[in-house]
């Protein structure tokens, strides 16, 4: 497979220019936290809800490769080697190959996307991700017309991931999107949050964020992206197909078989903070509802 340097694709002058724009945005206070190490443009897709603290976001994680407790990833992910890192792009693409992360990052526009995150377990957060649209990377790789779905895989490295000794899921962790979902501008690959590089427990160095779906769809520490013709197998669906569908769109009207999805608790809002009504597509209905026109969301859950 041919290795592609992104500098071949994007003229240097262009991204230099982009950096200058971002610097200018920083001067007038548009570029997020004042001491941000990762520069990112603000986005019209960001919510104005108050983000959770960095502490909350980085100490309450479901990342079973590092253990089942919410605090396990923060405890154990420190050993993960995230540099060097490359993502293999395979399947129905014009330019398959191993794409080094630093090359990927040279070619994309980093934005700050402040998104709601709704976990299938009934809690939610607001996270100021930094990332770029998945579409940008897929377009670089050149999606072939036959491709209908995108499949993702997480790293499996037992010596750095104590949780994979447990057979709780069939590793590697797998996720997937329909191509139109993957190409949607809300769908990002995130490489940082709060102006910092992505904490390892949050899926460093590169993870998916699909804000209108339950959190488990937003696969972490991605090493492989394949464009495929048929709906790919996904980890939670393989584990329990009755409870976790391929789509897993946030939907208060479609309960988990064992618990209600009607409302959620916002993490970090205190002992007596009111529960929040869960919204269809996690509040991104206007942006994404058209993707599912004609589909019965109770069947395609």
């Amino acid at each position: 497979m041919r290795k592609i340097g992104w500098s071949e694709v994007t003229p240097r002058a262009d991204w230099l220019n982009r950096r200058q724009l971002m610097a200018a945005a920083g001067v007038i206070g548009l570029a997020g936290p004042a001491f941000a190490r990762v520069e990112a443009r603000p986005s019209r897709f960001s919510t104005d809800e108050k983000p959770n603290t960095f502490e909350e976001i980085s100490n309450y994680n479901n990342f079973y490769e590092f253990g089942l407790d919410k605090a396990d990833p923060a405890r154990h992910a420190g050993a993960l080697t995230v540099d060097p890192w490359s993502v293999e792009i395979a399947g129905l693409v014009e330019r398959p190959g191993s794409y080094p992360l630093d090359d990927i990052l040279k070619s994309v526009t980093l934005e700050e996307r402040i998104y709601r995150l709704r976990c299938v377990e009934g809690w939610s957060m607001v996270v100021p991700w930094i990332g770029f649209e998945l579409r940008e990377l897929l377009e670089r790789a050149g999606v072939r017309p036959a491709a209908k779905f995108v499949a993702f895989e997480t790293l499996v490295r037992p010596e750095e991931m104590p949780g994979v000794r447990s057979r709780i899921l069939d590793w590697p962790y797998r996720e997937g999107l329909r191509l139109d979902e993957a190409m949607h501008p809300l769908t990002i690959l995130a490489t940082g949050l709060y102006g910092e590089e992505m904490p390892k427990q949050n899926g460093a160095p590169i993870r998916l964020v699909v804000p209108w779906k339950y959190g488990f769809k937003s696969i972490k520490s991605i090493v492989r992206i394949s464009l495929v013709e048929t709906m790919p197998a996904t980890s939670w669906n393989m584990q329990n197909p009755r409870e976790y569908g391929f789509y897993s769109n946030v939907n208060p009207a479609v309960d988990h078989p064992r618990w209600s999805q009607a409302s959620e608790r916002r993490i970090g809002s205190g002992f007596f903070a009111p529960r929040i009504e869960t919204r269809l597509f996690n509040g991104y209905e206007e942006e994404v509802a058209h993707l599912y026109a004609g589909q019965d969301l109770k069947v395609d859950f």
Binding site: D255, R258, W259, S260, A262, S263, R265, F271, P274, R275
Partner: peptide, 20 residues
């Protein structure tokens, strides 16, 4: 009190519908 916050409709539905 703290989790369901006396949302009795949800509490009732949970007790009736959720096996656990």
């Amino acid at each position: 009190a703290l989790d369901l916050q006396f949302r009795w409709a949800e509490i009732g539905a949970d007790i009736a519908k959720r096996p656990y």
